[in-house]
Design a protein around this nucleic acid. Structure first.
Lengths: 226, 226
DNA sequence: CATCGCCTTCATAAGTCCTTCACAAACGCC
DNA sequence: GGCGTTTGTGAAGGACTTATGAAGGCGATG
């Protein structure tokens, strides 16, 4: 079952799109502004986002930028501005397709399907990641070490999942904060240490000698990839 | 190799920015006023433009508008006016990021890189560099000589990465300090020697006969390019 | 409205690494 | 070849980073 997040400030359009997408077999989540969209994207982890660029307040382009800091999920953009420049900018920012207003709901559904087919084929972000004998299952929100389950809080899970998406790559505390909180504020950065400590306590055989969560002195942390 | 066009009417700033960007491996073209910027943009087709909004004569915003009539290339804006309005206008006009004066050159380089990474899905500045049988992997913060990993501190890593960005080119101690500390203060310059010594100990087969980290007497060091 | 769980903060301890210094070695110019 | 200058080296102190346990505060839950 696929989830689509629809972001538009006009309730009429949201309803219309929701109906058609549900008709087509999608689960639909909606948001009416930028912050709401980001929150919803974070929480529901949709398979695709339909985003109206003409949002009040936060610019639609900013929404995509923020989105891109924590997820590569595909985006289909709706815009009233027909200038080619807008389209290009939208596409450069990683949008996967666009529609100009007024658009037909049927076409929207077709585009959503097409984009999902494309990104699925390309193999988007893996939903289950294995690092050493650690298994991180995003849809089930579960982590196992070998055969035994490990109980994590949601923040701990998000942090681990962010690292696991690119094993071996070093993340700064700021990047990790963005991954779990959406914003990076220097003052909170030491809190990452605490989460890492708790994660280590829960999943390292010997927390004093981390095998998975490796400290990179002066830089940040990374998840061992071998 | 990526080209960046820098537009500023203050020669001092232009020079500073040029140095840092070249250090980062970019080809730099400069212009000091709006018309010059547009001409240079047309001719050299840079991959990105760094534009000071406080230009005399033609307004910086007009420059962006004119630019947009013939190219969607990314723009990073520098402004002394801190009002949020300016920022938004700048972004609405298709600028991709902004900095407020005074700004740190290091941050400018970081932003330029970030914007290029974003707009150019392929990712630009090589994240993994190979020099001889040395491999320097930035995201993983790892260095290998042939197949064997070499453990470096973060300063050593930064120093080596800076040299590796332009193999064969000689760097003064001051330039190396800037690369690893962001500022160059004469007093610290001898510390570079210590770092070079430690680097050699860790990655030269015979530290007495350096193969990679070559001393250029009276000038500085360079990384052998073959 | 009370309880519970969780995130952040703080203080302190432990650890890592950067710089410095002094002296030896190497270099280059004359 | 000699001499001043530049570079190499090892050790050590101290600054900075990270680890850790405990406690406060906040929101969720019932």
């Amino acid at each position: 079952m696929r989830t689509v997040l629809v972001v538009d400030d006009e309730l009429k359009i949201t309803r219309l799109v929701r109906d058609y997408l549900e008709q087509a077999g999608f689960v639909v989540v909606t948001a009416s502004d930028g912050p709401g969209a980001l929150a919803a994207a974070r929480q529901t982890k949709p398979d695709l986002i339909v985003l109206d660029l003409g949002l009040p307040g936060l610019d639609g382009l900013d929404v995509i930028r923020s989105l891109r800091t924590f997820s590569p999920m595909p985006v289909v953009v709706i815009t009233a501005r027909t200038e080619e420049a807008d389209r290009i900018v939208g596409l450069e920012l990683g949008a996967d397709d666009y529609l100009t207003k007024p658009f037909s709901p049927k076409e929207l559904v077709a585009r959503v399907r097409a984009v999902l087919r494309r990104t699925d084929a390309a193999g988007l972000a893996p939903q289950v990641m294995v690092v050493g004998d650690l298994t991180i299952d995003i849809p089930r929100h579960e982590v196992r070490r070998g055969p035994v389950g490990v109980e994590l809080t949601s923040t701990e899970f998000d942090l681990l999942a962010a690292l696991a998406r690119q094993p071996g790559r070093v993340f700064t505390r700021g990047q990790m904060l963005e991954a779990i909180r959406g914003v990076s504020f220097p003052s909170y950065e030491r809190a990452i240490d605490a989460h890492v400590k708790n994660l280590r306590r829960k999943l390292e055989p010997d927390p004093r000698r981390p095998r998975y969560l490796i400290t990179v002195h002066g830089v940040g942390y990374k998840l061992a990839d071998a």
